[in-house]
Amino acid sequence: MDGRRRSGGRPDVSYGNSDGIARNRSVILGTIHGYYKEALAVRPLDDLPELAPLLVAAGVCFGFADPTTNIIANTLSFLPPDHSAKKRKRKTKAAPSAAAARSSSETRAIAERSLEGLVTFLTSYFRYLPTWDALRYLRLANTDLLVAVRLIELNRGCYNTKEERFQISSYAARAALTCAASSARQPNVDGFIAASFSLASHLEFVTQAVIIADRGLRRSCCFLEF
């Protein structure tokens, strides 16, 4: 398809040429940056300055919850076990480090790593999915990993039974998440995997999110062209 836009004014995100890939990456990174702003608003780093270096080191936006929740959970999971005790002993605030998390260069780096992890997860789980195709699904899903997974299942039409559909507890999901964490250069892959599955086991809305994706996002599939 040579045109840049479809009828009705909707952007064409289906093609895999270099311009399309660059445009999709740019849009996705902008969306990811928005999630980091949301995470910072929910968990102000001015009050917890010790989280700033953890966010830029480990606060990737992928996992089995929504992107903002993933950022917060992945950051908090790297707090040392004795953090509470140290905080009680501290009489004054630690040296301000929130600026590190807010600096454009460092947030850009963690956003890039998040995108690398997201693409790696999709291309690892769906064996024949090319990178450019993973990017368009992520753009359509607003960078929500579970929504992107369900969109791929719906659009490909080859995951019709419950047994064929994505299961968080499956070996394939664990393997894909491990590959994603490694590609995103998580400082502790095993800790990240354990924290991700622990969070998923306590999130009832994970199943509801898949159901919503199944019902509410079917119409997105009609915008996917090959």
Rank of each mutant, 00 (worst) to 15 (best):
G3Q: 08
R4S: 15
R4C: 10
R10E: 10
Y15N: 03
Y15C: 10
L29D: 01
T31P: 00
T31F: 00
H33D: 13
P53W: 03
V56Q: 08
C61S: 10
P67N: 05
T68M: 10
I72Q: 04
F78N: 02
K91P: 00
K93C: 01
K93P: 00
A99S: 07
A101C: 00
R102T: 01
S103V: 07
S105E: 13
I110C: 09
A111S: 15
E112W: 09
E116G: 00
E116A: 15
L118Y: 06
V119F: 01
Y125A: 03
R127K: 15
L129F: 13
T131M: 11
A134L: 07
L135T: 12
A141R: 10
T143K: 07
L145Q: 04
V147P: 02
R150S: 05
L151Q: 02
L154K: 05
N155G: 10
C158K: 12
Y159M: 02
Y159L: 09
T161Q: 09
K162P: 05
A172N: 13
A173D: 00
A184R: 04
Q186N: 05
P187W: 05
D190G: 06
G191E: 13
G191C: 07
S198F: 14
A200I: 11
H202L: 13
L203I: 12
V206R: 05
V206C: 09
I211V: 15
I211H: 13
I211R: 15
I212K: 11
D214P: 04
C221N: 12
C221L: 13
L224P: 06
E225N: 04
